[in-house]
Structures are given as structure tokens and as C-alpha cells.
Write a protein that binds this DNA or RNA. Structure first.
Length: 490
RNA sequence: GCCCCCAUCGACCAGCGGCCUAGGUCACCACCCUUUCAAGGUGGUAACACGGGUUCGAAUCCCGUUGGGGGCACCA
């Protein structure tokens, strides 16, 4: 637990905006959010957009949109602001540069005049000789006269922090456990580019310090770099935050989840008809969980979550389980809400056009209970009720199978006659009529009704056919049955 | 190459020295229910990577091996 009485928990999410968020990053943000809510702390959103060549305003907007959709609301950050504004790293460079100057003035950092080419060449050589390819610290050993000479010739310089060769740095990671690093493994890394721009580690540490971040929860790709950041924090006189490194989220091939595994962005999942609560529930359980329960509300997640319980081993993103869980959440929705959510999918599939006509409105409402137990994703809904809105083509394979039995033409003919005379046209009367026909012919329901599914829905994967027929109306049903009869070869 | 991290059913989680003949969930299989498809119900298959220790006792602690992942940038 981190409910240390002396300071309120402050965590942050620090996305580099490159478009819609990757689900792996979302899990990291979710854990931060859960930790903040669980401890009654603050969740800060800081956008790490320092590499201006890579980040666009659209990408930035997409990040905020994703977080809002997931309802991972932030207490400080863009739009809501707060005492540590600005919350976009690109607007904080002066702060970072000032910190670098301070490190320079106290001798914790020094200027390095090595060129990129020199460094690359030395790195390549080190690798070839089996040595660690980091910086060898030679500019730290520059004499004053050598340095003045470089300055006089106007040679550009980066700023590096000096790391002692001896000693070790130990920190207690809340998911990994104690982590020890020998200082000889850490090179004098750069904190300012030769054009004066601050580098990642500097920016993170300065901002985490200024924003009084107490608990850093992030991906374990930063685990090996954490000692560097601890060193920087100390050099800057910051309190050292606690760290929790989350293992990677894996794809089905056990490789880190990436675009080549297909959909990985929140936008993709939203468009496929996943519900935000299902995604949150599912992601929360990737790397953390309880023994018995899997469907957990946000409140339950918040009260049970503890970073210390997070698995140190990587977890695979299992779409099958997500689909199941999403289906559970769809069934939890009330009909009105589900209707509201599937409507865009109907429109997108060309079944209806907004604003809805009265007739379509009625059909859309009536369709909801028919699809609710039949879909796992919202985008599966249109296929089940296409026949409700359109005179759909009959699926050739389904038709071939359903119309093959010898009794089918006669059955369809009888149905056309019986239904043609049916009054009133209600679900009960339609069902009774068709069941009657099946019984007279001693047909089992499943074989008897297959032709009707194909005739009305175009397929045997469909919402229940009696409901559809009732909603479609007598005349249209008769039309489709006649069409089916013709397709049988009559 | 060097350093660091990880290792329970196919997947996610439970297990934190005896309650384990290893539990739950997804997936899978079978059966039931059923107008198709689902949903629902019942049951089932299935795992402690390997090898050494420590201990009366190990899935649980330690060490190796193997296998995965990450880091070693004037990227973030």
C-alpha cells in the first residue's frame, strides 16, 4: 500500500501523441487511474510531445478523445489545467533547459563535443569488440584548454550527466521487486541535444519532480532506464518517486502487441463495437486479477486494485475473452441504451438513414431485444437484422442447403396460402400458423423453419424469424416467400 | 556482446511452505434447453518449463539450465 500519510499520491499518464492510443498504453494509464482512485490521489495527464516533427495536433486530439471515451478522467492536465500547468511537454522546454543549466553549474553535468559520427563509429567498434556500446565519458576528462579550444572553433556540444564508475543503485519496484544496477553499467547519458533541446530522461525527471509525482507506473521498457532517472532526480534534489513497472502486453504469438497483430488502437476497438466498460474491465484483468470474479464494475476495480498485486510477467491480449466479456456488457445494457449504441452501426451498414423515419424507429427499437443475446460486438448487429430493413439477397450456400429437402416447395406454397389468409398479423398468429404447417407435415422445427430463415433473412444466422416476419408485414413476407419458392426451381 | 527482468491449464487470473488429488474465468468438447443463430444450464479435457538444493514438508524459498522480453541513442 502506498497510503503514506505524509504525501498524497500523485500519478501521471504521459502519452506521446501518435494517434489513437495503443491498448497496451491504455492498460498502463488505467492502472495509474485505478491507483489514484484507490488511494484517493490525483491522476495527472501530461502530453509528451517534445519531438515536434513526429506529433500532430490531430494525434493529440485523438489521445484526449480516447481517454474521455474510456472515462479515465484526469484531475490535472490539458483542458482541466491545474497548479503545474502547462501539461504539454513541448511548452515546458525552458524548465528542462534551466534544470540542465543547474546541473552544469554544480558540476553534475558537462559539455560533450563528440560528433554524432564519432559516437556512432565508436559505438560500432565497441559492439564489434563485444563491449557495451555506450558513451565512454571522454569529454568529461577534457582539460580546460581543450574545452576552450572546442568552444573557440564553435563546435556544438551536448550536455551529459556524469555518472560515477563505482557503486550501485537499488530501488524497490512495486511489481518487480528489488532492482539493483551497477553504476558501471550506466554511461554518461545526454540530457540536452546539441541544438539545445532537452532529451527524454531530463524532461521526464524534471516534470515528474515539478508536478510532484509520487508514484510512477509505466511500461517495463523503462525499467533499465530507471536508475538513470533516479540519478537525475537526486542530482536535481527531487524526492525519489516509487516505481512500478508493468510488463508488456503480448500478441497471440507472444510477441509484444503491435500493429502487425491487427487492431491495437482504442479507435479500432471503438469502431468494432466494443464498449468502454468492457475494455476497461478486460484491460484491468490483464496482469492483475482476483481469484473468483471477472466481471467487475469500475467501483469494484477501484476498491480492489493494488499495484503491488500486479503480475511481473507479461500477459497475452486474448481477443476471445474480450469478445465474451463485451457480450456480457452488452447484455447488461438496458434496451434504450443498447438501441442508442447500435444505431450508428445500422446506419453505417446502410440499413437505416438518420434521422430515422417512424417506421425505422419502430423497427430499430423492436430489433434490440432480438440482438441483445446474439452479439458480442455492436458491429455484429446489422447482419442479424438486415432482412428487417432490406429485401436481402439469399445467401447461395444457405439457400442450397435449406431448399434441398423435397418437402420445401410444397411447404413454401402452403405457407404462402396460409399466411396470405392470416388475420390478424401478429407474432402469435404467424408463429401458430407456421408451427401448424410443420406439425401437419411432421417436420421437426429446426428443419421446418430453415427455408423461412433463408427466405426472410437471407441466412440461417439471424434474429428469430417470427419476430422479423411480424415486423416486416404480410405483403413483404409473401413477396419474399414467393421469391424463395422460385429459387427452389418452381 | 554486456546488463536487467520474466516463467501455474491453449489464454487470463487464484495460490504467497502444509488447506493442492492445484481453484475460477475465456476458449474447446459433450449433453440439456431451443424456430435458426445466440444466450442460459450441467458436465468434461487441460498446467506448476527443466535440473539441483533448503526443509519433516515446495507451485510457493535459493542456485543453475533452457526459453521469452527489455535496455545499452544528440528517440520517446
Amino acid at each position: 500500500m502506498n497510503d503514506s500519510p505524509d504525501r498524497q499520491v500523485r500519478v501521471r499518464a504521459a502519452p506521446a501523441p501518435s494517434g489513437s492510443l495503443h491498448v497496451g498504453n491504455v492498460r498502463t494509464f488505467l492502472y495509474n487511474w485505478l491507483h489514484a482512485r484507490h488511494t484517493g490521489g490525483k491522476f495527472v495527464l501530461r502530453i509528451e510531445d517534445t519531438d515536434t516533427s513526429r506529433f500532430t495536433e490531430e494525434a493529440y486530439a485523438a489521445v484526449l478523445e480516447d481517454l474521455k471515451w474510456l472515462r479515465l478522467e484526469w484531475d490535472e492536465g490539458p483542458e482541466v489545467e491545474g497548479p503545474h500547468a502547462p501539461y504539454r511537454q513541448s511548452q515546458r522546454t525552458q524548465l528542462h533547459v534551466d534544470a540542465a543549466e543547474r546541473l552544469l553549474s554544480v558540476g553534475a553535468a558537462y559539455r560533450c563535443y563528440c560528433t554524432k559520427e564519432e559516437l556512432e563509429e565508436r559505438r560500432a567498434r565497441a559492439r564489434a569488440e563485444g563491449r557495451r556500446p555506450g558513451y565512454d565519458g571522454r569529454c568529461f576528462r577534457l582539460t580546460d584548454t581543450e574545452q576552450q579550444a572546442f568552444e573557440a572553433e564553435g563546435r556544438p556540444s551536448t550536455v551529459r550527466v556524469h555518472i560515477p564508475d563505482e557503486g550501485e543503485i537499488v530501488f524497490e519496484d512495486r511489481v518487480i521487486g528489488p532492482v539493483t544496477t551497477q553504476l558501471e553499467q550506466i554511461d554518461d547519458f545526454a540530457i540536452l541535444r546539441s541544438d539545445g533541446a532537452p532529451l527524454y530522461h531530463l524532461a521526464v525527471v524534471v516534470d515528474d519532480g515539478l508536478m510532484e509525482i509520487t508514484d510512477v507506473i509505466r511500461g517495463d521498457d523503462l525499467l533499465s532506464n530507471t536508475p538513470k532517472q533516479i540519478l537525475l532526480h537526486s542530482a536535481l534534489g527531487n524526492p525519489i518517486p516509487t516505481f512500478a513497472h508493468l510488463p508488456q502486453v503480448l500478441g497471440p504469438d507472444r510477441k509484444p502487441l503491435s500493429k502487425r497483430h491487427g487492431s491495437t488502437s482504442i479507435a479500432d476497438f471503438r469502431e468494432a463495437g466494443y464498449l468502454e466498460d468492457a475494455l476497461v474491465n478486460f484491460l484491468a484483468l490483464l496482469g492483475w486479477g482476483t481469484a473468483e470474479d471477472t466481471i467487475l464494475s469500475r467501483e469494484e476495480l477501484i476498491s480492489r486494485f493494488d499495484v503491488a498485486d500486479v503480475h511481473p510477467s507479461p500477459a497475452m491480449f486474448d481477443t476471445k475473452k474480450l469478445d465474451w466479456m463485451n457480450g456480457e456488457y452488452i447484455r447488461l445494457l438496458d434496451e434504450q441504451e443498447l438501441t442508442r449504441r447500435v444505431l450508428p452501426f445500422y446506419a453505417n451498414a446502410g440499413l437505416v438513414r438518420e434521422p430515422l423515419s417512424d417506421e425505422d424507429r419502430q423497427k430499430v427499437d423492436a430489433a434490440t431485444p432480438l440482438i441483445q443475446t446474439r452479439i458480442r460486438r455492436l458491429d455484429e448487429a446489422p447482419a442479424l437484422v438486415r432482412g428487417l430493413f432490406l429485401r436481402v439477397e439469399m445467401d447461395p450456400a444457405a439457400a442450397a442447403k435449406a431448399f434441398a429437402p423435397e418437402h420445401v416447395p410444397e411447404l413454401l406454397q402452403a405457407a404462402i396460402e396460409t399466411l396470405g389468409a392470416l388475420d390478424p398479423w401478429t407474432k402469435e398468429s404467424v408463429e401458430a400458423a407456421l408451427r401448424g404447417l410443420a406439425e401437419e407435415r411432421q417436420l421437426k422445427p429446426r428443419t421446418a423453419f430453415a427455408p423461412f430463415y433463408v427466405a426472410i433473412s437471407g441466412s440461417t444466422v439471424s434474429a428469430p424469424v417470427f419476430d422479423l416476419m411480424t415486423l416486416i408485414g404480410k405483403q413483404e413476407c409473401l413477396e419474399r416467400l414467393r421469391r424463395a419458392l422460385e429459387a427452389c426451381g418452381h
